[in-house]
């Protein structure tokens, strides 16, 4: 197979004068079962031989579970198949077609170089409450903390989020509601998450706003590109948890939990 690749090149995203542009590359003799990232690898090898600058892009596990890869392929985050970018194979495209590859487009995800963006904003949302503060100790009796299968399923359906950020890139508002909703749902339905339930949702929503993410207008595009197929039900959960926390919370965040 052969393709024309339109790839976004931007040497330094933090440089205001470097606006970035598309560069066109021709690739030939491509195995239909090669992944798009492998095609980029081949292209980079060629660029190295030609003493040209390689194309920067993120990847790690290349088996669709780490959430590092972050390409916008033909305008859709992660490409046409609702899988991660690394799981996008060349057989998904038509021989000879032009494929446009861009970085995630969101002001909260500044471009570092070419296709690599800084998704630190999502990490800071996690730091604002996406954890539980348990002290270590002997393993508790499993029966002491019953979790019904339904609750467990709900938590796991949300916990499956790999934090790739495709939801933000797909959202016309650049909102991180699906991501934050998944994290809040995951921890707030489980018994281990109860002590910090309200602080968690308030902290994460405040951080989300402080980072400059937009708000949800219920387009549902996030869920349509999510490689883990997380439903926008988690956004409903986030809205509900936030409303309840704001209406019922009386005191300032209780620091006693974290300083034990």
């Amino acid at each position: 197979m052969k393709f024309t690749l339109e790839i976004w090149r931007q040497f330094d995203g933090s440089d205001e004068n470097d606006k970035g542009r598309f560069e066109t590359f021709q690739v030939e003799d491509i195995d239909p079962d090669a992944s798009l990232l492998e095609v980029l690898d081949q292209l980079n090898e060629r660029l190295s031989r030609e003493k040209q600058r390689n194309i920067a892009f993120d990847s790690d596990c290349r088996e669709g579970i780490c959430g590092a890869c972050s390409l916008v392929i033909d305008g859709t985050p992660h490409g046409p198949q609702q899988v991660t970018s690394c799981q996008t194979y060349m057989r998904d495209f038509i021989d000879g077609q032009t494929i446009t590859i861009e970085p995630y487009r969101a002001n909260t995800f500044p471009v570092i170089r070419d296709l690599a963006v800084d998704r630190g904003a999502l990490d800071r949302v996690i730091q604002a409450g996406g954890y539980i503060s348990t002290t270590t100790g002997p393993q508790p009796d499993p029966n002491a903390m019953p979790v019904s299968p339904e609750v467990q399923e709900q938590a796991m359906d949300a916990a499956i989020c790999i934090g790739c950020g495709a939801c933000v890139a797909a959202c016309p508002n650049g909102a991180a509601m699906l991501f934050t909703g998944a994290k809040v749902t995951h921890l707030n339905v489980l018994p281990q998450g109860q002590p910090e339930r309200q602080d968690r949702v308030i902290g994460m929503v405040e951080q989300m706003d402080a980072e400059g993410f937009g708000g949800c207008t219920n387009y549902g595009e996030c869920s349509r590109v999510c490689p883990q197929e997380i439903s926008i039900d988690v956004i409903g959960m986030l809205n509900r948890e936030y409303r309840k926390a704001k209406l019922t919370k009386k005191s300032k965040p209780d620091k006693a939990m974290t300083t034990q």
């Binding site: 969101a106 002001n107 909260t108 909102a175 937009g214």
Partner: peptide
């Protein structure tokens, strides 16, 4: 306004 500022 916020939503527009969140996207290039």
């Amino acid at each position: 306004k916020r939503n527009r500022e969140a996207r290039p």
